[in-house]
Simulated scan of single mutants.
Amino acid sequence: MATEEHAGGLQIHPMDQFIVKPLFGDGPIEWYTPTNVTLWMAIAVLAMTALLVLSTRRRAIVPSRGQSVAELFYGFIHKMVEDVAGHEGLKFFPYVMTLFMFVFLSNILGLIPMSFTTTSHIAVTATLALLVFFTVTIVGFIRKGPGFLSMFWVSSAPLALRPILALIEVISYFVRPLSHSIRLGGNLMAGHAVIKVFAGFAGAMGVASVVPIAAIVGIYGLELLVASVQAYVFTILTCVYLRDAVGDAHH
């Protein structure tokens, strides 16, 4: 170990920040082991509870700053769900709102120095994406029955092309969880890795470190934008998928 540390040269390990570690001890990680991932997911849930529940408990006519922020998020997501998924999609507004706030707060908390970005892990984003996938599929069959499968049959296309298009649509449907999760996790992981690389250069360049530090400031600002945009994209895609399940439903 000592030989590796004194081998010389600039050593930057940008992926070390994504290592899952147990909170207590150094033993193996089991499914029940508290880790840095579970810690920061719990912090995101507590932050969401504080913003949406505690700050709005008085529901004043003249809102406090916390209530104003909560109402802003509420109105924004409510309009998104109604515009994209339609009136029937509003029944799933609490789920979509919770999903957005968890992803958004996890992204923002991950930008705090020495924190852990839970949404940079595919295990987390894939779980969220699979929940959306199974929710849409189950709701689609409950509401439409076998008619839910009609979304794969492009009736407006020439008859000869319909089987081919149906196969493409089926493949596209089952790839949704993969693209849904990788888009979020990949973007956050890449941005944090770049910041770590520039931080490594800043620590090794002495006086000239002003250049990588300036780059870090610029990238950090960009990451704030990415954290917000990726939460929005993840949520609006959820609404688009919900539209497949609840759209054109007549009861």
Results as ranks from 00 to 15, higher is better:
H6W: 13
A7W: 09
G8F: 04
G9M: 12
Q11L: 04
I12A: 01
D16S: 14
D16R: 15
F18M: 06
F18L: 06
I19K: 13
V20S: 03
K21T: 15
F24S: 12
G27L: 07
P28T: 12
I29T: 10
Y32D: 14
L39K: 12
L39I: 02
L39H: 09
W40T: 08
A42L: 13
A44C: 02
V45I: 14
M48C: 14
A50I: 14
S55F: 03
R57F: 06
R59L: 03
A60C: 07
S64F: 09
A70Q: 06
A70F: 05
F73H: 00
Y74N: 14
Y74P: 05
F76E: 01
H78Q: 10
V84T: 11
A85M: 11
G86F: 02
L90V: 00
F92G: 01
P94H: 12
V96E: 02
V96I: 15
M97C: 14
M97K: 08
T98D: 05
F102A: 06
F102P: 02
S106R: 08
I108S: 01
I108C: 04
I108Y: 02
L111Y: 02
P113E: 11
P113S: 14
P113T: 14
I122F: 12
I122S: 09
A123G: 12
A123F: 08
V124F: 02
T125L: 01
T125D: 01
T127R: 12
T127E: 07
F133M: 07
F134P: 15
F141T: 13
I142R: 13
R143Y: 06
P146Q: 08
G147F: 04
M151W: 00
F152C: 09
W153I: 05
S156D: 12
S156V: 13
S156I: 09
A157M: 15
A157Q: 10
L159A: 15
I164F: 03
I171Y: 12
Y173E: 02
P177T: 01
S179P: 03
S179N: 13
S181H: 04
I182A: 04
I182H: 04
R183H: 04
L184K: 07
G185T: 11
G185Q: 10
G186V: 04
N187F: 04
H192M: 12
V197P: 07
A199W: 07
F201P: 00
A202T: 09
G203Y: 08
G206T: 07
V207Q: 12
A208H: 06
I219S: 03
L222S: 13
L222K: 11
E223G: 02
E223I: 03
L225M: 09
S228Q: 10
Y232I: 04
V233S: 04
I236K: 11
T238R: 06
T238G: 06
V240T: 06
L242M: 14
R243F: 00
R243S: 05
V246K: 05
G247D: 11
G247N: 11
A249E: 09
H250D: 14
